[in-house]
Amino acid sequence: MSELTKKINLILKVWRQKGPKDVGSFKEYEAKGVSTDASFLEMLDAVNEELISKGDDPIAFDHDCREGICGSCGFMIDGEAHGPQKSTTVCQLHMRAFKEGDVLTLEPWRASAFPIIKDLMADRSAMDRIIMAGGYISANTGGARDANSILISKNDADQAFNAATCIGCGACVASCKNAAAMLFTAAKVSHLALLPQGQIERKTRAERMVAQMDAEGFGACTSTGSCSASCPKDISLVNIAQMNREFLKAKVFKEDQVDVGGGF
């Protein structure tokens, strides 16, 4: 424990909801003697240990890698997705970002397309279905090719990589006043549109992913920028412009379906 480590006491107002059909309400908990070196999720683990020892139901929250790269964790802390620190997932948010006596309100992502499973866990499978609609590339199997045989400009590679850093956590949807999944979908569309490997499905990708996004009940973009400001990976709004371009191209210059026959 470093010399800078402090112990702080917090009050948590946590959204408790038994299941998707339950109404849910806030319940207050005390988090005592929290090390400022602990992560936010470690702090919740300690609170849960105490709840379990008392025979209470622990607070349910999503988490997996706890190193900011898997996209599993995420909830609202005082109305901010992943909490107050920029470019940080809640698992990488540390308690030194808070001070003694803070009262924190924890809520799950709220969107019609994200039904609440329990407490702070929201069902984000709508995003998986958007990916299934077009967020993939065709890859032939066979002998492995040399990784450097496909040339990609440095700029395209960098832009594609920036878009590819999206971990699909859903903070953009949670932060958007319209619960739009534009930033998420756009990151996937841009990422693949910029790379040679993504060209085969390019003409249909934006169209299919946007259709799925709409079907899931996400809202439209009103360019408020809340999504990008809340994104733990700083995905830029520029990706939404790229997706809109791709979408228009796909719709306006739709290729005729070639009749390949098949009959005799």
Partner: peptide, 27 residues
């Protein structure tokens, strides 16, 4: 469509650039 996508708000409002600006929110 946007209202249907977000039927319930949050108990606490965000701050800074994470909140939609007045101009965009009240179009």
């Amino acid at each position: 469509q946007n209202r249907a996508a977000r039927t319930s708000g949050y108990a606490v409002s965000p701050r800074g650039e994470k909140v939609a600006r007045f101009g965009s929110k009240t179009m």
